[in-house]
Simulated scan of single mutants.
Amino acid sequence: MMNIDDHCSNLYRQRDWKALHSALDTASPGRDPDERSQIEHWRATAFSAESRHEEAIDTLRAIGSDCRCQTRVSKKIAENLRRLGRDMEAIEELRNAPLAEEWDSFRALVLDAKYVLAHLLASNGLEVDQTILDDIPDGYIHITDRGQRISKSDLMDLISGRKKSSI
């Protein structure tokens, strides 16, 4: 039998939102917080892809302690806030994320969130803390939630004013 992650991934790639929501509605995670988190992650991902950003944010906020990496949740909330034109709220969401606390346990996810924070700051004309930039490797490629690839050099061009916002 196909696990929920594989099944949802297939439905997501097909853009079959009705079937995806139906699969999520019938999933039974019981008391397993990882399964509950996974189901709600897919629900929020679908809402975001459907441009139902407020519902995605509400779903992500409801995940709460079920998700082991709170920074990942904050990053996804920030991406949805940005799509709603609420960049300052998105920046605040990421500034309040437990980036330092989760760095050792979830480095890749925290690095991704730091990139999004730096990009949001730069695209809004705000200063990007050098320590955030130092944590992002020179060859780093960020893949947006819509599949666009953006490099650290693109970010540096944005900070220097040589390039416009690309997320």
Score class of each variant (00 low, 15 high):
Met1Phe: 06
Met2Cys: 03
Ile4Thr: 07
His7Arg: 12
Ser9Asp: 11
Asn10Cys: 03
Asn10Gly: 07
Ala19Arg: 09
Ser22Ile: 00
Ser22Pro: 00
Ser22Gly: 00
Ser22Leu: 02
Ala23His: 00
Ala23Asn: 00
Ala23Thr: 08
Leu24Asn: 02
Thr26Val: 04
Ser28Trp: 00
Ser28Asp: 09
Arg31Val: 10
Pro33Ser: 10
Pro33Met: 03
Asp34Cys: 10
Arg36Glu: 02
Gln38Glu: 12
His41Cys: 08
His41Lys: 10
Trp42Asp: 00
Ala44Phe: 01
Thr45Met: 11
Ala46Leu: 00
Ser48Gln: 11
Glu50Gln: 12
Ser51Arg: 10
Ser51Ala: 11
His53Val: 03
Glu54Trp: 06
Glu55Tyr: 03
Ile57Ser: 06
Thr59Glu: 08
Leu60Lys: 04
Leu60Ser: 03
Arg61Gln: 14
Ala62Met: 05
Ile63His: 09
Ile63Glu: 11
Gly64Arg: 11
Ser65Met: 13
Arg68Leu: 14
Cys69Asn: 14
Thr71Ser: 13
Val73Thr: 12
Ser74Lys: 15
Lys75Pro: 01
Lys75Tyr: 14
Ile77Arg: 10
Ile77Thr: 11
Glu79Gln: 11
Asn80Lys: 00
Asn80Met: 01
Asn80Asp: 11
Arg82Val: 08
Gly85Ala: 09
Arg86Leu: 12
Asp87Ile: 05
Asp87Lys: 11
Ala90Lys: 04
Ile91Gly: 07
Ile91His: 06
Glu92Pro: 01
Leu94Asn: 06
Leu94Gln: 05
Leu94Thr: 04
Arg95His: 08
Pro98Asn: 12
Leu99Gly: 06
Leu99Asp: 09
Ala100Ser: 12
Glu101Arg: 11
Glu102Met: 09
Trp103Arg: 14
Ser105Met: 15
Ser105Cys: 14
Phe106Glu: 10
Phe106Leu: 09
Leu109Asp: 15
Val110Ser: 02
Ala113His: 04
Tyr115Val: 06
Tyr115Leu: 06
Val116Thr: 13
Val116Gly: 03
Ala118Ser: 08
His119Gln: 05
Leu121Lys: 04
Ala122Ser: 09
Ser123Gln: 14
Ser123Cys: 13
Asn124Gly: 05
Gly125Met: 05
Leu126Met: 12
Leu126Thr: 01
Leu126Asp: 03
Val128Gly: 03
Asp129Cys: 00
Ile132Glu: 03
Asp134Tyr: 05
Asp134Asn: 12
Asp135Gln: 13
Pro137Phe: 05
Gly139Gln: 10
Tyr140His: 14
Ile141Cys: 09
Ile141Gly: 06
His142Ser: 07
Asp145Phe: 10
Asp145Lys: 05
Arg146Asp: 15
Ile150Ser: 05
Lys152Cys: 03
Ser153Gly: 02
Asp154Met: 08
Leu155Asp: 03
Asp157Lys: 11
Asp157Ile: 01
Leu158Ser: 01
Ile159Trp: 04
Gly161Leu: 07
Lys164Ser: 15
Lys164Asn: 15
Ser165Met: 09
